[in-house]
């Protein structure tokens, strides 16, 4: 998959000879590098700084602010005003701990459901006739291009009490009374699985397509049942795809805001939503920053693991 490609280690010496050196090369490196430093890395330093500040009724609504005209003195004064108050606050109010835990739980369960649903689809794609594959693959990717918000919104009309799903279930006599699905955790699971299923299918497909199916034939020839052959051969050989898919679903699901906000109820709290409320409703920027920093710390492990796994895969495919 594409993500694996950019970490492919290549023949550095040869490259250097192609590109050479000089001001053009420096410029080529400097422009995107500086852009990312300014608009990606610097903002995180600011978030960290504000998470250590206090909330005040002012513009901007935090203290201390760094005044460059005061020079070094101002810098020192700023540091002296920092404290961990916001982080202490996060441990005192159980709302935040609950938000983190429930985000992890919801993301984990959704990832597992996506895996169980995505695996057979990826498998069927990989085994589909060759001339069909690229079209089918495009059909998997296409929903990813249409607006996330709209795809989540589409489920309201289906899941609500007088919605399409209840209508069909009542009409077919499966249930006697309409189910309450919208504004429950179930709706969030459906929303996350639906939105992120392509992320699960694609890396699984990439692995399953390359799988050497003669191994399976050999196993069946030697008296293995198809089920056992799958369990002993196919599954272990697709582990890298399983990991990639799970990370790609789990990581964004933890910080998800739109799905719990639109499909979930008020009793379901997820950390992305808590951060949003803290920022936009309570206007407490320092606490929102502290929530963001802790969320980041929570996600660093899975992100690093994902990157390591991608690098390993890239090396293996060479």
């Amino acid at each position: 998959m594409a993500l694996a490609d950019i970490t492919t280690p290549s023949q550095e010496t040869e490259q250097a000879s192609v590109q050479g050196s000089g001001w053009r090369r420096s410029l080529l490196i400097a422009v995107p590098y500086i852009w990312l430093l300014v608009f990606f890395l610097a903002p995180f330093v600011i978030v960290l700084k504000i998470s250590l500040s206090d909330v005040v009724l002012a513009r901007p609504p935090y203290f201390p602010t760094f005044d460059i005209s005061e020079g070094w003195q101002g810098f020192v004064a700023m540091f002296q005003a920092f404290d961990l108050e916001n982080y202490v606050w996060l441990t005192e109010d159980t709302l935040y701990l609950k938000s983190y835990l429930s985000s992890l739980k919801i993301a984990f369960i959704s990832t597992m459901i996506a895996l169980v649903l995505g695996y057979p689809i990826a498998y069927a794609l990989a085994k589909a006739p060759k001339e069909w594959r690229s079209t089918l693959l495009m059909l998997v990717i296409l929903p990813f291009w249409t607006s996330f918000l709209i795809r989540v919104y589409a489920w309201i009309g289906i899941l609500k009490k007088e919605g399409v799903l209840n209508y069909v279930l009542l009409w077919s006599g499966i249930i006697d009374e309409p189910l309450t699905i919208l504004n429950t955790d179930a709706a969030i699971y459906i929303g996350i699985v639906y939105s992120y299923l392509p992320f699960m299918i694609l890396p699984l497909y990439a692995v399953l397509e390359k799988l050497d199916y003669s191994l399976l034939e050999a196993a069946t020839d030697l008296g293995c049942s198809p089920f056992k052959a799958f369990w002993v051969i196919t599954l272990p050989l697709s582990v890298s795809g399983i990991w990639a898919g799970c990370f790609l679903v789990f990581i964004p699901a933890v910080g998800e805001f739109v799905i719990p906000d639109i499909l979930g109820g008020s009793s379901t709290i997820m950390i992305g939503k808590t951060l949003w409320v803290e920022f936009f409703s309570n206007r407490d920027w320092p606490v929102a920053s502290a929530v963001a920093i802790l969320l980041l710390i929570m996600l660093i492990m899975p992100i690093i693991l994902f990157q390591k796994q991608q690098e390993k895969q890239a090396e293996a495919s060479q």
């Binding site: 990312l36 430093l37 903002p43 995180f44 600011i46 978030v47 933890v254 992305g272 963001a292 996600l299």
Partner: peptide, 19 residues
Amino acid sequence: MIYATMVMPEVITGLSLLL
């Protein structure tokens, strides 16, 4: 930085850019 930007939760990216 290129990888991290892609996997970063949107709420964090949004908040950090705003700040």
